[in-house]
Simulated scan of single mutants.
Amino acid sequence: MVYNIHQRDIAAPSNEVGELIDSLASKNDRLWPRSEWPAMRLDGPLSIGAAGGHGPVRYFVTAYELGRRIEFQFTGPSGFNGHHSFTATSLTDNSTLLRHELSISPSGTARLTWPIFFRPMHDALIEECLDRAERQCGSSSGAAHRRSLWTKILRAPFAARIARK
């Protein structure tokens, strides 16, 4: 079982951080770093049942609470049995915990592709989402995520294609 958590305390009210979650997969997506990564796309508006993904990762929305939480169930790649979610939880009037959780039980080839390929890419992508959230809310801690050498190597074959989109 893989349980992967990334979170950041954002110096902004929960409704402002929740708006970032609500913008996912839209033309005005303010959370997903789509200039650097494959865009998150869905076959309709952000709602339960909407299906899509990013790059080779496929999923559909299983839960959605406006301004608070979105959860996706994986449908691909093969062997990714589980879900991932974004949640905004108010800590104080001007502080919100933005959390991404991934829970999968990898099977088949995913037992190898998750730790070697998908995990380093996932970790970098989600940290860049959290950096973007801080910038969007005007609360950057100043220390943006830096990609590891391994992540840079893994991204190299895809980087030009992402930049053209």
Rank of each mutant, 00 (worst) to 15 (best):
N81L: 07
F60M: 08
G79R: 09
P13Q: 05
R111M: 12
G18N: 07
A163E: 04
R135G: 03
A50M: 01
S78T: 12
R164H: 05
A159N: 02
A39W: 00
D43N: 15
A63M: 12
E134A: 11
I126S: 06
C137Y: 11
Q7N: 11
P120G: 06
E65F: 01
Y59M: 15
L97T: 00
Q73L: 06
A12K: 00
S14K: 11
D9L: 08
A133G: 04
G53P: 11
H6K: 09
S85P: 07
F74Q: 13
D123G: 10
E36S: 06
K152M: 10
E19D: 13
A12N: 01
E127S: 14
P45A: 13
T109C: 02
F117G: 14
L102T: 11
L154C: 12
R135H: 14
M1C: 10
A11C: 11
S23W: 05
L97P: 02
S14R: 12
I10Y: 01
L20Q: 03
A88F: 02
T75K: 12
H84C: 14
K165T: 11
T75S: 14
A11P: 04
I5W: 07
L20A: 02
A144I: 06
D93W: 02
L149N: 00
A11S: 12
V57F: 06
A50Q: 02
R147E: 08
A144H: 05
W150F: 03
A110I: 01
I162G: 04
Q136L: 06
P77D: 05
S23V: 03
A11L: 14
H6W: 03
C129V: 04
V61E: 03
E134S: 06
S85Y: 04
D43A: 12
E134V: 02
N15G: 05
G55A: 14
A88P: 06
G142Q: 12
I70L: 08
G53S: 08
F60S: 12
F60T: 13
T75L: 09
S14M: 02
G82K: 08
Q7R: 07
M40I: 15
I5G: 05
R30T: 02
T109M: 09
L154H: 08
R155T: 04
I153T: 10
R34W: 03
D9Y: 04
G44K: 03
W37P: 07
I126W: 05
F117L: 15
S78E: 14
Y3C: 15
R164Q: 06
F158L: 11
S14V: 12
S78N: 11
G55D: 15
P38C: 10
N81E: 08
E16D: 12
G55C: 14
T87L: 09
N4C: 15
K152E: 10
I116M: 09
S107W: 01
G55R: 14
D43R: 09
R8I: 01
V17Q: 09
D43C: 09
P56R: 07
E127Y: 03
R30H: 03
E128C: 07
S105L: 12
G52F: 03
P120M: 11
T109G: 00
P38A: 12
Q136A: 15
Q73S: 13
A144P: 02
G76Y: 01
T151L: 00
Q73C: 05
W150S: 04
H6N: 11
R155P: 00
S26W: 00
G52Y: 08
S140K: 07
